[in-house]
Amino acid sequence: MKKSNAKLLIMGALLSISMQLISCKSKLKDTDIQSSLNEKVQADSRLSHVTTSVNDGVVTLTGDCPDEACRTSAEQAAKDVKGVKSVVNNITIMPATPPVEVNTDSGLESGLRDATKDYPGVTATVNNGEVTLTGTIERSKLPKLMQSINALNPKKVNNNLTIK
């Protein structure tokens, strides 16, 4: 009785060891790594221009980042993903350009009053940053008028003027 009990114990131990070995060997699939990488990258707005690819547990980062801190944090985030063996960081640094500043409608309206004062045939209206020009103008005067209007920081200029 005692002997068979010991045998069972040993067999059980061996079985559990071999199962552990198997589970150790089975590495995470690239597709799983890719999906957790995607989650991480999408969560960080600074990494919106970074793309990732995985091959045999090796992650390659490409795209651009506004600064070095963003570049290294992207690399660290990739290293932290389970199953990643190494990370190739090909991210280039591209300083972010500030968004275009558009004048307020009231700012545009007062600027347009001044800009169109000497063009009696021209009417300018503003809607949500867009300037629309109607009426008539001589072709030779058009560039000057457009220059003053463009300098007011409109979102867009719709030139519907009839040219004489």
């Binding site: 275009v100 058009l142 457009m146 220059q147 300098a151 867009k156 200029v157």
Partner: peptide, 20 residues
């Protein structure tokens, strides 16, 4: 610059540039 703009978009009709 303005004459190039005028050449590429005659009479500034397209409304796709703000040149400041």
């Amino acid at each position: 610059l303005w004459s190039i703009y005028n050449k590429l978009d005659p009479d500034f009709r397209s409304g796709d540039v703000v040149l400041d």
